[in-house]
Amino acid sequence: MINKLWIFFIVSGSLFLIINGKADVLNTQILSSGKTTLDLIIQIFPLLAIWLGIMNIAKKSGLLDKASKFISPLLSKIFPEIPKGHESIGLISSNIIANLFGLGNAATPFGLKAMESMQKLNKEKDTASRSMITFLVINTCGVTLVPTTIISLRMMHDSTDPTSIVVPCIIVTFISLFIGLIIDRIFARRYK
C-alpha cells in the first residue's frame, strides 16, 4: 500500500514538474529531503531521550503498572486483544493524555513505546496487529483539547478571538474519533 503510494507521489510529481519545465524545483526537492528529515530527527531526538528516561523510571517503580490498572477497564473495551494489566495499556493511556494536553513531543515517545510493547504481543512481526491499527487511528484523529499551534498562528495574524476555534475543534475531534473507532472495528472484522 505505502509502496504504491510512494511510487505515485514520486512519479506523478516528477513528471508534472518536468513537463512544466521546472526541473530545477525537482532537483532542489530531491537533494533537500535528506536535510529536512535530519532537521526533524534532530528536533525529535533530545525530547525522545528525555521522555524515555522519565518513562523508564515510571516503569521500574511500578507507577506505569498502577496507572494501567486504573485506566484498564475503559481501554480494554477499545483494545480487546491486549491482556488486562499489560504495560501497553499504561503506555497507550500516557500517549492519549499527553495528546489531550497538546504535548505532541511527549506523546510521540509514549506512542513509540506503546507500539513496541504491542509488537511483543504481535505474532507476525512484519504485520500490523489489530490493536496497533486501533491505536494508530486514535492518533491520526489528533485528539487534543488545545490546538496550540493553530492558536498561536491565529494570534500572529491578529485574530480578535484566537481561542474561538477550541470548542468546535473538540467537538469535531471527538465525534471523528468515535466514528474512526467504528470504522476501525468494521475493517478489523472484514480482515479476519
Binding site: 509488537q119 512484519d126 504485520t127 500490523a128 491499527i133 491520526t140
Partner: peptide, 24 residues
C-alpha cells in the same frame, strides 16, 4: 510508528486513518 518498530504490512491502517480524516 510502523517504520520504527519494523511493520511492513500495514493492512487497512491507511484506509482507516484516511477515512477518519475524511470524517473530520
Amino acid at each position: 510508528y510502523f517504520g520504527t518498530i519494523g511493520i511492513k504490512k500495514i493492512k487497512y491502517a491507511l484506509w482507516a486513518g484516511l477515512l477518519a480524516d475524511l470524517m473530520t
